[in-house]
């Protein structure tokens, strides 16, 4: 009787184990499928011309997405330029002034920002920048992306700097080094790898963002580096082409998707390897 129920319990345990493993493995199916389609259809669309030429009008063969690649690069670069100083500064403040009203409310603000939908940033930046300037622009797109990136930079800076032993800071202070130099020359360099990783993950996130760009960067068929003009971006191209009625554009959308995914995954990979490689031993 006892042994009978015991073996039954073992069997139940086994079955549940199988169920868990089954569901866990099934959830990798979509990933495999997505990568499969991206590889198959994307490869077919990508060639040298695709990467180096401007788009052609519907009906004409060929054409590429170089404007979107350059546009994405500009947007990401400008967004990083805006988000990193502000984010590192705010993260530094949070790590130094752990308690206090300002820290508390700043943390709440960052939490809110981290959780808010990207489309909302698009709407707000539209109201802040596009409407007053009466034009879609690369500038507004970068601002929207910078806001998306900010929480990640702040979190990673705060976490990294908090983990740096306090004695390191005191070692510098005890040598008669002023506080600001201690932070800039000892604390930040010691946290450099963590902060860089955070920035890379942030960049990876905004590189694929489409929603905040819909009414800011807007997209453009030209190669234009004027920050006050609309600009193309890879995710926008994927969206616009995929939802267009032209099969020829669909193919191009697969190509652009593959380029975009490749870019994003490379960034993630760099961040991951970097975390291990650049780790500083205290």
């Amino acid at each position: 009787m006892r042994t009978g129920s015991y073996s039954r319990r073992i069997v139940i345990s086994r079955i549940m184990e199988c169920v868990i493993f089954f569901f866990a493995f099934i959830s990798l199916l979509p990933l495999t499928l997505i990568l499969f389609y991206l590889a198959k259809k994307g490869m077919a669309a990508i060639d040298w011309q695709f990467l180096t030429h401007l788009p052609r009008p519907v009906g004409e063969e060929g054409g590429g997405v170089v404007n979107a690649i350059v546009g994405s690069a500009i947007l990401i670069f400008c967004a990083t330029l805006m988000a990193v100083p502000l984010g590192v500064g705010a993260g530094l403040y949070l790590s130094e002034a752990k308690e206090g009203k300002l820290s508390y409310w700043t943390r709440v603000a960052v939490d809110i920002l981290q959780g808010s939908p990207s489309i909302v940033m698009g709407v707000v930046v539209y109201l802040w920048v596009v409407k007053p300037m009466q034009s879609f622009s690369a500038l507004s797109g970068s601002i929207a992306l910078a806001i998306m990136m900010l929480p990640m930079v702040i979190y990673s800076t705060e976490e990294t700097l908090k983990a740096i032993p306090c004695t390191l800071k005191e070692a510098a202070l005890a040598l008669g080094v002023p506080y600001y130099r201690t932070i800039l020359k000892v604390v930040i360099p010691a946290g450099m790898s963590g902060i860089t990783t955070g920035v890379l993950i942030g960049v990876a996130r905004i590189a694929g963002e489409t929603a905040p760009l819909l009414f800011t960067a807007f997209g453009s068929p030209f190669l234009d580096i004027n920050p006050l003009k609309p600009v193309a971006a890879l995710p926008l191209v994927v969206f616009n082409y995929a939802t267009s009625p032209y099969p020829q554009w669909w193919e191009q959308a697969w190509g652009a998707s593959l380029v975009l995914t490749f870019l994003v995954l490379c960034l993630h990979l760099t961040a991951k390897i970097g975390t291990r490689r650049w780790k500083i031993q205290f």
């Binding site: 694929g208 995710p235 998707s257």
Partner: peptide, 10 residues
């Protein structure tokens, strides 16, 4: 890590 626009497209 895959961007959401690609999920949509797929």
């Amino acid at each position: 890590g895959i961007p959401s626009v690609i999920y949509g497209f797929w």
